[in-house]
Amino acid sequence: MSSVTTSLAPAAKVESATALPRRAISLTERLLQVNLWLVFIFFYAPIAVLIIFSFNSGRVVSQWEGFSLAWYAKLFSNRDIGLALYNSMVVAGVSTVISTIMGTLVALGMERFDFRGKLSMDSMLYLPIIIPDIAMAVMLLLFFVQAGQLLARIGFGFSLGLGTIILAHVAFNISYVAVVVRARLADFDKSLEEAARDLYANEWNTFRYVTLPLIMPGILGGALLAFTISLDDFVVTFFTSGPGSTTLPLRIYSMVKTGITPEINALSTLMLLASMVLVLGSLALQRK
């Protein structure tokens, strides 16, 4: 019976498109199509402008004066940007590793066990995602300043820098990883674990050979999300950074603030390219 209904459903859908009066469709349909194209233009026009003018030889961003790779050359000789990129990679890499491990563990705990205080733990996990990043940023700033002063008194003073940025990024990335991994665990067919136990696998082997490989896409997805968010983060980083710990977004911000130059366009184009490669790569991985 159910197979009959499912096989009928797509057919019914096709019919609905043709069964309605032709004229009525074409008007609504045309409006829908216009909206579709407008939205896509809205999405892609700014990106196109950035890319085009990154190859402009002139300084003015919107007056085409001829093709040139000068801004890319300038970009590659800019040591500040190289350093910022390095800092960004360190922050994103370290915070991703830490938050992926902790987020996966906590997701397993939350999905598999019932315990007192689970509801509080749940809220504590969701809040960092919900709270605006500006609020997250200032509270971490206050915390680090206070903690720094306190620890300085007993000789363990520290100042804002890469360390505090990483600590801050882990604080919100755990939640993102946990959400993604939990979604994967919630879909998990428990009878697969039962089958493993039935086939002489103890708890550890069940986890090692069945659970872990099956939730791996979720873990990798969570890690990728954490990495992207960390790399992208400006506000929290802005407030928890110190001298010498400028990340790429911070660098871009100060460049934008001091004035628009095609150099930023060149940088943007490269970053666009990098994130496309990253995203398409992860999509290809997921398809496997």
């Binding site: 700014p46 990106i47 950035l50 992207t228 790399l231 992208d232 400006f234 790429l248 977004p249 871009i252 911000y253 934008v256 628009i260 930023i264 940088l267 943007s268 970053m271 666009l272 994130s275 496309m276 990253l278 995203v279």
Partner: peptide
């Protein structure tokens, strides 16, 4: 998926 700052810029 591209940097928020760049999109705003």
């Amino acid at each position: 998926w591209t940097n928020f700052l760049i999109r705003t810029y």
